[in-house]
Nucleic acid binder design. Structure first.
Lengths: 142, 142
DNA sequence: GTGAGTGGGTTTCAAAATGCAACTGAGGAG
DNA sequence: CTCCTCAGTTGCATTTTGAAACCCACTCAC
């Protein structure tokens, strides 16, 4: 990752992946779609914007550009290890959209065999996380 | 929620909470900060932008405006039930920022007594979700 | 060898969103 | 009176976005 930041981790994360189209591009990488033109088609992002987003994500160490062909040089985009750990963010977003927004919920399939209903839990006790668990120590730098 | 949408649930969710400052405003509501001026101070959002964001989130049914005083009429913002279910999104973002971005990780405390390390699991088997669990049926409407 | 297609972009330019600062308006405190 | 609080709104300059066209190096079909 390029730079350490101060303050709230959520705000820091949003600086990396919070711009329009960034998360949709990441979604495609999780889907296994790695090529520029395919990502454009599937997200609907303008080419020039997607171009700057991908560069930003690369700078932040979330994804890497791999040359898969010389002459003419062609590249594909792949998640780094840090990038792969963004899955919970994408999943949480999908789960919420599934539950509250779309007409016909899309099914995701877990490797255990059942439909994936993603929940966020405490790694220690396994209990679901509640709003009361969040306290507010972070004020932006005065 | 106002309107059913088509296509990818993640994209639909981003239409609701994906604009700049929206998630930081929601973070504050989870913290228990409900007043306009406090949210402005703590997020750093421009007042006019925050104003439009809050109205949008209200329209989408994520939060509600409550009058807490007459003459002069004063309002505070509270999460609706649908809004409260956005916690996993905020938590996932925080967890990732904590792990990859900030210099000194912030601790969150779970009600079970230990530090909250949020993980996303399958509700059925309890196993962690992997990228392989995500398949890609959603192309944007041609 | 010419014309169309592929793939990963960049350029151009107009329209839209953002952000800063100042202002408003109804009251309360000193 | 005068200053302060709170929840905004207004005006205007700056930034970002987005649609469309273009570019370049190559390959493939004719």
């Amino acid at each position: 990752m390029r730079s350490d930041r101060e303050g709230c981790p959520a705000a820091a994360a949003l600086e990396v992946i919070g711009e329009r189209w960034s998360l949709l591009a990441l979604r495609e990488l999780f889907y296994g779609v790695h090529r520029f033109d395919r990502i454009v088609e599937r997200t609907g992002a303008p080419r020039n914007i997607l171009s700057t987003r991908l560069r930003h994500l690369e700078d932040e160490g979330v994804l890497e550009r791999r040359r898969y062909q010389e002459a003419p040089a062609r590249y594909e985009y792949h998640l780094t290890e840090a990038g792969k750990t963004l899955l919970p963010v994408v999943l949480a977003l999908m789960a919420w959209g599934n539950d509250h927004l779309v007409r016909e919920p899309k099914l995701m399939h877990h490797t255990c065999g059942s439909d994936l209903r993603a929940v966020t839990v405490c790694a220690d006790c396994g209990g679901e996380a509640h709003a009361e668990d969040v306290t507010a120590p972070w004020v932006r730098p005065a």
